[in-house]
Computed example of a mutant assay.
Amino acid sequence: MTQHTRWEYSTIPLLIHATKQILDQWGEDGWELVAVIPGPEGANPVAYLKRPKAA
């Protein structure tokens, strides 16, 4: 039987002046960037991330 990867997801607000630092930190923790969309009312963008769930 094939095992499927289980994912966990997170959303984080991005501060324009610190976007790279924020994404680098989450990347160090194993998170992969999936998408970035505008935040509510055009405020700071929101990053959607995923990583494999621990077994």
Rank of each mutant, 00 (worst) to 15 (best):
P45R: 03
D29W: 06
G39I: 09
L14Q: 03
P40I: 10
Y48T: 05
P38K: 04
T2A: 15
R6H: 09
P45W: 09
G42P: 05
G27F: 10
R51F: 08
I22D: 06
A47C: 03
I12S: 06
L49I: 02
Q21P: 01
G27H: 11
W31R: 02
E28G: 15
W31V: 04
S10V: 08
D29T: 15
E32N: 05
P52Y: 09
G27Y: 14
K53E: 00
T11V: 08
E8P: 08
V36K: 04
W26H: 13
R51D: 08
P13G: 02
Y9F: 10
W31F: 12
A55N: 15
P38S: 14
Q25N: 12
L15H: 14
E41W: 03
A35L: 05
K20E: 10
I37E: 03
K50R: 11
A18Q: 11
D29E: 10
P40H: 03
Y9V: 02
G39T: 03
G39C: 10
I16T: 14
E8I: 13
N44G: 12
W31M: 01
R51E: 07
L15V: 11
Q25T: 11
E8K: 03
T2F: 10
L15D: 15
L49P: 00
V34Y: 01
P13H: 10
G30Y: 11
K20C: 07
G27I: 11
T2C: 12
W26A: 07
E32I: 13
E41R: 06
H17N: 03
L49C: 01
T5Q: 12
L49W: 00
R6M: 01
P45L: 05
A43T: 12
G42T: 00
L23Q: 05
M1E: 10
I12E: 13
V46S: 02
K50F: 02
I37R: 01
A18F: 10
R6I: 03
P45V: 04
K50P: 02
V36H: 03
A35I: 05
P40S: 13
T2L: 14
V34N: 09
K20Y: 06
A43R: 08
L15F: 12
Q25L: 13
I16N: 09
E32K: 05
R51K: 14
Q21W: 05
G39K: 00
W26T: 06
P45I: 07
E32S: 07
H17C: 08
T5R: 08
L33G: 11
Y48P: 04
R6Y: 00
I22M: 15
A54G: 09
A18C: 11
T5C: 07
Y48A: 04
L49Y: 00
Q25Y: 14
A54S: 14
G30F: 02
S10D: 05
L23G: 13
D29P: 04
P13A: 06
Q25H: 15
A35M: 12
P45N: 10
L14E: 04
D24M: 15
G39N: 04
E28C: 09
K20G: 09
V36S: 00
S10W: 00
H17A: 10
T11Q: 13
